[in-house]
Design a protein around this nucleic acid. Structure first.
Lengths: 230, 230
DNA sequence: AAGTGTTGTTTTGGATCCAAAGTAGATATC
DNA sequence: GATATCTACTTTGGATCCAAAACAACACTT
């Protein structure tokens, strides 16, 4: 509704994501309110929202604390996104794609091809990829016939490390990121191929695997870099 | 925290689930507050929680409205639960089950056998099954190595028709429900079998199918009833 | 010495007040 | 007659006040 209502939520979300609070730290309403320069009311509202998002946990009978995340949680959150996006892809393949949706997906696929065509990655390309990646995923999830899947994914994505566009972090090693995006692009194209052919199981499996690219492809990419020089 | 804080949430949740409000109806803070006999403050807090749970939607710039659910939403919510519980089962199968967990699952399986052994269903058996079913599912989801999956399922289950124990509605046709529970029992046993053997893919698939029992098994059960008499 | 009861402090929950934003209705103007 | 603007009313957001619950420290009793 008003700016500050949602803004307190997103400001807190940002602070938590940045690690401004220790994991498990207890958050008092007054302390946070003073820190953000607002009264207790919007903070109280925000705490309820953040609790549901999974970023805060009730601390016993009184107050909230910052949710602690293990490495297993991170992996699980990514797998959850994969499972849900895979479900969306399977449903979409089974119900068939509209020409408009096919064209839309092809458009973003082409954008990816264009981006990677020059053979390397520049700093500003990261933002472009993030955009097209977001559109690609949102189009698939949003066309699965019900907003329930999309809502579940959105809730999962509130965990800062689970979102699809958290692929890119390392803007130092751009050559390495380039190879990662090449793989992501191939996966995108294969997903669309499977969707067009109505191959539900394949679309689901590809989408699920695609979710893991940010976590499990690290060694693969390093091997790829060393092989040509060795 | 206090009773009424959570109680306003659950009272509203119940009212919405019972259809006390029309789908899409706009909910004003003052109106609801008066109806529940509290002030606006706890209602405002509850609205934020219910929004995150997916039961309320923001109505443009002002206020909230009751979320409208289509039949596709119901099916999707059940499939989402299946996908997530399937993911939990696969992870559990791959990481291996502790002896304690195996014993626990066997315990609830045996309870199910006992319940169905007499060959028919009584009114009070429904509650017993609901209990053991809940324990069975919670044990699997809670042992998947991270609470992230369980949280996602819990959020999904806030949709009143999506929860696992919404299997049973029809306490009139107890013979029909008996056959349904027989199938559910078989599925439970097969899931445990797959889990014990570390068959991740099979466990996942079985769990996913199991989620559909409340929706997709209707005709099958009717056929089963008519076949012996024809 | 251990456990229990009491008191004081801290923190949250609920109610109310005020301001701001939004909506609708009416009037005036083109 | 239609559109635009102004005004009055409705509804929500933010701040503050008060009460109640929880936690901690201390003292008292057994």
């Amino acid at each position: 509704m008003s700016d500050s209502d949602t803004s307190v939520v997103s400001r807190l979300r940002k602070l938590i994501g940045e690690g401004a609070f220790r994991q498990g730290e207890r958050l008092g309403e007054v302390a946070v309110a003073e820190q953000l320069g607002v009264s207790r009311t919007p903070v109280r509202l925000a705490f309820r929202t953040l609790e549901q998002e999974g970023l805060l946990q009730r601390a016993g009978k009184r107050g909230f604390r910052v949710r602690e995340f293990t490495e297993a949680d991170v992996l699980c959150a990514v797998e959850v996104r994969g499972a849900l996006e895979g479900l969306a892809a399977r449903r979409l393949a089974e119900q068939g794609m509209s020409p408009a949706l096919t064209a839309e997906l092809e458009f973003w696929i082409q954008k990816g091809r264009d981006l990677l065509a020059k053979g390397y990655l520049e700093e500003q390309d990261v933002e472009v990829w993030s955009e097209l990646n977001r559109h690609f995923h949102e189009n698939i999830v949003g066309s699965a016939g019900s907003s329930v899947i999309g809502d579940a994914i959105a809730r999962n994505n509130h965990l800062p490390f689970a979102a699809a566009d958290s692929i890119i972090i390392d803007s130092e090693a751009l050559d390495r990121e380039y190879r990662k995006l090449q793989l992501a692009q191939v996966q995108h194209e294969l997903v669309v191929q499977a969707l067009r052919h109505g191959e539900g199981a394949r679309a689901e499996m590809l989408m699920r695997e695609h979710a893991l690219i940010g976590l499990r492809y690290a060694e693969l990419l390093d091997v790829g870099r060393h092989a040509p020089s060795g």
